[in-house]
Design a binder for these strands. Sequence first.
DNA 1: ATACCGACCTGTCAGC
DNA 2: TGCTGACAGGTCGGTA
Length: 291
Amino acid sequence: MPELPEVETIVRGLHTRVAGDAVESVWIGSRPQPLKSPAGVIARTLEGKQIVRVHRAGKHIVFDLEGATGASQPKKGGRGVRGQPRQAASLRQSAQWIVHLGMTGRLVVCDAALEIAKHTHLIAKLASGRELRFIDPRMFGKLSVHAGGFDPGGVEPLEVSEAQFIALFRGRKTPIKSALLNQKLLRGVGNIYADESLFRAGIRPRRRAAAITREQLGKLHRTVREVLREAIALGGSSISDYVDADGEEGFFQLQHRVYGREGEPCLVCRTAIRRIVLAGRSSHYCSKCQK
DNA sequence: ATACCGACCTGTCAGC
DNA sequence: TGCTGACAGGTCGGTA
C-alpha cells in the first residue's frame, strides 16, 4: 500500500498524536507472519517505554522509545528484582520499534472502546487511555524492535544530491524502473512514484540504467523529488483503502499522469497509455513522451 | 553479481 | 447468485 509519501503522511500524524505518550501494555495476536522479532521481545521492549518521536526511514516507520530498565516488569507486588542494587535500572534505556506496512498495513490510534477490526495483529495500550493498533489483512507488513540506530540501507530520495543520485545507477544494466524500486539504492520509491517520476523525466521504464545520459538522470533526480514532494503535500495517494493516521484520504491519485491510466490518453500528447509487466509489477508509460 | 519469477497472504472486482 | 481469475501501494529467496 504505502510508499514514501504515504508513510511520511502517516508518520506526521502519528507523531502529533502519540509522541510523549507511553506504552502500558501490549497484546500481540497469534499470527507469526508480521513478526520479525519474537513476540515476547517486542512486548517487553515496548512496555513501560515512552514514545519520544515517530519518524520515517524509507518506507519504515520508526518509533523512538525511552524508558527505565525493567519498567515493564514490576506492577504487581515486586520491588525491583530480588533486591539487587539497581544502578542500571535507573538508566534511561532507549530502543526503536520498527513498523513496515507492506501492502495493506495500517496503524491507527483510537479509543480503547472501539471494536477491534479483523486482522488486528498488535494493540499497544497507551497511558493516555487510547490504543495504538496494527492492522494488516495480507500480513506483508513487518514488526520488529531494534536497539537503536536503525538503518534500512539506501539513501533518502529527498536528501540525495544530484551527483550521488547519478552515481547510484552507474554501470547498472538493470531496467531503470527496477533500479528505482531497489530499496538498497533509493529507499522509499515504490511502484506508483517510479512510474510517475519516469513519465515526467521522459524515460521508459525498461531503459537500462547504465544507458541513460547524465542529463536525463539529472532530470530524473529532479522529477523524483518533485513527485514525492507534491504527493506529500497532498497527503499521499489513496487508491483503494489507504488512509492516514487520522483516517483521512490522500489526494495525489488525482495527479497521476500514467499510473492506473492504461488505455487512457496521455495528458500531454493524447497517445494511449501503455501497461507492461516489469519485474512482476505493472508499469505504465506513454510511448511517445517517454524514450 | 544480476534479473527474472514465484511465493508470501487476503480482499475486491470484472466477467461469465 | 456464485464461481474463477486477475490484480493490488512490497519484499524475499531460489534459480538461471
